[in-house]
Nucleic acid binder design. Structure first.
Lengths: 186, 186
DNA sequence: CCGCAGGTGTGATGCACATCACAGTAAAAT
DNA sequence: ATTTTACTGTGATGTGCATCACACCTGCGG
């Protein structure tokens, strides 16, 4: 399902078929079942993943054993433990599948080669990264300024599809609430 | 003080003097006094700023009039309302000076020209943006997982210099606490 | 020299949300 | 079909932090 990737990239930079064929050659496909890990805490994170189909979560488990979700990854999202991916260190995040998931994978070395060979991809990654940065800024402001109910409502507006795909427990872990509090909101 | 910028860029990509001279030509210098605004909420944000000397804060004021600090900008930090800068929309963040501040400014059009002319700068911005993304992820995790005291201690470790330069009230606004709570921590 | 504003500490009180505990329903596993 | 495991709701209680109120101190301008 490389066409998904092509369409995704072309939202930001136009590509010829030849260019895309070259780009595609840097990726490998993998499929994971629900509950399987893409990345485990304490292990290496050699790949950045592009989610073609399915749904994953990236999370950290704190010293009390509570999990805090940093990011969901649904169709057309990029996800990995970037800290570990870029530095080569072991992961502090875990990423596992909420649904059966189909991803495209690229290693760091291949990503660098790809950017060197295809300037358009470097431009693409810069734009993606900038948008991602702004999205995280919005989330930080949301955490700083709003209470439980408002945060939940913002999430409903921003990702209306998510709520039907992920259990409320996980929504709570993303919003920084207990599941009981979330349950009492609506 | 363009040498500061050169050194800063060279931490990520090496530059010849000629290359840097070209890069420098895209920036203009400005100086601001304490309490002056680099960007005001509701106005345009035509520049990205590189702080050569001084200290600023980027913040949002909520409906109750409380301010929430998204970012401090001290020496060698880049800062603007990126949302407004990239989109051309009016700013939802304000940025003003905590100290007299000396910045280098680049417009969006110039930044794009610069990246087009100097591939190294595109690479530089991609790296910067990636690092920034990871830093924001860490801050989100910190907001999700830690209480007031731990967040404050993390801040002390991460930016030991800040505490001597900015009033505690502002530290509290950055950490998402009331000033009274922060005052009771140590 | 005095008045005033900005920054800080500290008590009293209140509230949003966490935690603990239990129950019920749905879905998956055997 | 039966057990087990997720997921969700809801009461009772606890607590971290906000809010309100006030006092003190320091630096600055008139």
């Amino acid at each position: 399902m490389l066409t998904t990737l092509k369409q995704h990239i072309e939202q930001l930079v136009p590509l010829t078929d030849a260019e895309f064929a070259q780009i595609a050659s840097f990726f490998t496909e993998k499929k994971f079942k629900k509950h399987q890990f893409l990345i485990q805490e304490g292990e290496a994170a050699p790949y950045e993943f592009f989610v073609v189909k399915g749904l994953v979560k990236a999370y950290h488990t704190d010293t009390d054993g509570k999990t805090h979700i940093l990011q969901f990854g649904q169709e057309q999202w990029w996800i990995t433990d970037y800290q570990a991916f870029y530095s080569g260190a072991t992961a502090t995040l875990a990423i596992d599948c909420i649904e059966d998931t189909h991803v495209l994978c690229i290693t760091r070395a291949n990503r660098e080669l790809l950017c060197a060979n295809q300037r358009k991809m470097e431009q693409f990654y810069l734009k993606k990264s900038s948008f991602g940065y702004m999205a995280l800024q919005r989330r930080i402001l949301s955490l700083l300024t709003t209470n439980a109910k408002e945060r939940y409502e913002q999430l409903l507006l921003q990702y209306p599809g998510l709520i039907n795909r992920v259990p409320k427990t996980l929504i709570a872990a993303y919003l920084g609430l207990s599941r009981e509090t979330l349950s009492r909101l609506s």
